Computed example of a mutant assay.
Amino acid sequence: MHTAFLRRTLWVLPAASLSCPAIAQGDGASPTRYHVNSRTATYEVLESPSEGGGKCLYRDQTQLLCPGTAFIAFEKHYRTKDYDLILISMGETGSGTRWWDWKVIVDDGKQATVKPFADECLECDIQVENLDFRSNKAVFTYRQKKQEVIVSFHAGKLTERKKSLNSREPLDQETCNGLFGNYEECTATRQNAANCTMARANAGHFFLMRTEDRYAGISYKGLQLLCKNACSTGKAMKRETFLKKVCRR
Rank of each mutant, 00 (worst) to 15 (best):
S17L: 14
L57W: 02
T113D: 10
A41C: 11
E174W: 00
L10P: 01
D132G: 03
A41Y: 10
Y78V: 00
K145R: 11
I105E: 02
P67L: 04
Y220T: 04
A24P: 01
G109N: 14
L57T: 07
D101K: 06
T32Q: 15
S152F: 02
A138V: 04
Q111M: 11
C20Y: 14
L208S: 01
R98D: 12
K163Q: 13
L13G: 12
F207P: 05
W11L: 13
I105V: 15
G96I: 13
A22Y: 14
D60R: 00
D101F: 06
T93K: 12
E169Q: 14
N136M: 03
T80L: 02
A118Q: 05
G234I: 10
S232M: 15
N182D: 08
A201H: 13
I150L: 14
K163D: 06
Y58M: 09
C121N: 09
T211M: 02
E92N: 15
E51T: 11
T197G: 04
R98V: 12
R214E: 08
D132N: 13
T3K: 14
C227L: 14
E92K: 07
K157W: 01
R79S: 02
E75G: 01
D213T: 02
L171K: 14
K137P: 00
Q191F: 10
Q191Y: 08
P21Y: 05
Y220W: 09
C227H: 01
F242A: 08
E75Y: 09
F71V: 00
N195E: 12
L18M: 15
